[in-house]
Design a protein around this nucleic acid. Structure first.
Lengths: 332, 332
DNA sequence: TCCCTATAGTGAATCGTTTCATTGACCGTA
DNA sequence: TACGGTCAATGAAACGATTCACTATAGGGA
């Protein structure tokens, strides 16, 4: 059933070595011979067996990309950027998501390791530093995505989330809001914690301003809707919400709208994070903190390539976020 | 560097066959021996080489999923459903997207074939029937996703798009709209053509109603925005738009809103398709034709498993769509 | 005591590709 | 004629896990 180089060689009347040479454009194969081999490949419908190739080569032609949630457009945009850059290098990207769950994250890491990926891009859920360190020792270079590497020293591509959080809060404060609510979670995610930290710093600088925290279990639309319900039910309502990302912001807006009690932005201003395409098309277009999504993916692959080829040059790249103002935070 | 079963065997003082037996829970390995082997694995940090495994086994533990666009939430939801079901079976899903481009589709098919995927789920861009037929002959079972199989006979999981198109148009007509515009493309995509066909049938049944077509190059938000520009610039404006999917609908709504000339739904009603989560959270929540997204993915894997194990029982499963009415089509 | 069986473990062969040292053929030059 | 130098092509070895026919040992029954 399976056609191998051996069969091709037989058919073309050459040795397997020659077939391999033709396939890999390597050495000098006489044009006539190459033609005969290619004809045989065509006739037999030969398709290279990647497993055998990898086995011999010792590592695959793929890199793993493990993100928190593929349903969040932020990550698919990052993935797109990564894929484009990888393809230029003849590498393919294996996309997986942990769903913000430690167990799934660990499972996927196991898989990637068994598959001998050439490198790994990861937005970690928990504290997997030790685990990643082991991977690296085994020769799998690693780049953290959307997460600043600690002193330990992985390469990383991130956006200054503290600055982003500050931007968001400052914008709300400048619009006259004083009772802010941060909605996001789990707080164990560095992104969430950093954005909150930045917001807190901004709030601390303004007299009579305060910021409360509503922690949610995951950064999904459903969690946002649930959060809206709690906001509406609370005694002391905030006059502005800073959501840890746009998906949550959209959920909150939808929840608030469905129940019809509060108007955005008059009663409640909303700021999101990521500036995904859908934020601009929302019920009330959502102000958001923009991150260069595709560029993040592209750059992450870039750093990975540097480590794969160059050796040990680790770099931490930090992009600066940018505030994008829309209807959801219009001044009253 | 790389630790192999041989090393583990050496360390544990057993043969490689025994190590393999321990790994595969297979035969009867004496508890004491198994323990020693596991200890050796732990100490040496042994990780199975998947390529070698596959090579011997002849096929991988993955299935390929090739969709039109990973950035369309419809497809990530389908993927989620597929992944869940696959994982229950110990299979992993390789997700790739063609970006609606024939060339990329072909490239990914090549890759999947080289990787000897266990099966393939695909939402085809063009007419790849011949190509898929060849794949199947080589032992890779195939299930079409979101696309009804022709008589030729692949298994398929789809939604009745003609019925969906009819639902959408009937809804608009019932709301008193008479000058409809269908926005979608490329028309070579079966989904797009079918939805249009259904809409045309509904319009034909109502006197004085008409439907024009604005073909766009791809089903993206950007194309939707561009379409909005053309709608606004046209002499005879439609009073309702039926977009081929929600992403396009959101783009149209955003475009129309930015330029501020038309109000939704008063001047222009909008219906989308897929009922992605973001549709409900849109500027004006978008009426849409719902498809059971995760169920489609789940069912597709189900059919694939049936073909992998059972042999040749091909099935075509067709779900019925459902109209979800929201603000964007409120009656004037 | 001898034979039989069940149990535990062995290790060579295998999967398909790539690599690389080696062979063979041919040409021009000394 | 002999020699060195290219250029083409060869084919055995290697990658690492799994399989399976086989051996060795121990225990039980007659």
């Amino acid at each position: 059933m399976a056609v191998s180089v051996r069969d091709v060689a037989l058919r073309a009347g050459v040795s397997v070595g020659t077939v391999s040479n033709v396939l890999n454009r390597r050495a000098t194969v006489a044009p006539a011979t190459a033609e005969r081999v290619l004809a045989a490949i065509e006739e037999l419908g030969f398709v290279r067996n990647d497993a055998a190739r990898q086995l011999r080569a010792g590592s695959s032609r793929s890199i793993g990309l493990l993100v928190l949630d593929v349903r969040n457009p932020f990550f698919t945009d990052v993935a797109r950027g990564a894929e484009e850059r990888a393809q230029e290098e003849g590498l393919s990207v294996l996309l997986a998501d942990s769903g913000e769950m430690l167990e799934r994250e660990s499972q996927h890491l196991d898989l990637f390791e068994e598959q001998r990926v050439r490198g790994l891009l990861i937005t970690p859920v928990g504290d997997v530093a030790a685990r990643l360190e082991r991977l690296r020792e085994r020769g799998i270079p690693i780049v953290l995505v959307d997460r600043m590497a600690g002193a330990g020293g992985f390469s990383s591509v991130s956006v200054d989330d503290v600055a982003g959080g500050r931007l968001a809060a400052e914008h709300l404060l400048a619009a006259g809001r004083r009772r802010l609510l941060f909605v996001g979670g789990p707080l164990s995610l560095a992104q969430v914690a950093d954005r909150l930290e930045g917001a807190r710093a901004a709030v601390a600088a303004v007299p009579h301003a305060r910021i409360d925290v509503l922690e949610i279990p995951s950064l999904t639309m459903a969690s946002g809707v649930a959060a809206a319900r709690r906001i509406l039910g609370a005694d002391a309502r905030p006059d502005a919400v800073f959501a840890a990302n746009d998906v949550v912001a959209l959920g909150i807006q939808q929840g608030v709208g469905m129940l019809g009690a509060l108007k955005v932005p008059d009663d409640l201003a909303i700021v999101g994070y990521d500036d995904i395409d859908f934020a601009a098309a929302a019920a009330v277009p959502i102000s958001s903190v923009r991150q260069p999504r595709e560029l993040i993916g592209r750059t992450a692959v870039e750093l990975l390539l540097a480590e794969i080829e160059g050796g040990h040059e680790r770099q931490q790249i930090v992009f600066q976020p940018e505030m994008v103002v829309r209807e959801s935070t219009r001044t009253r």
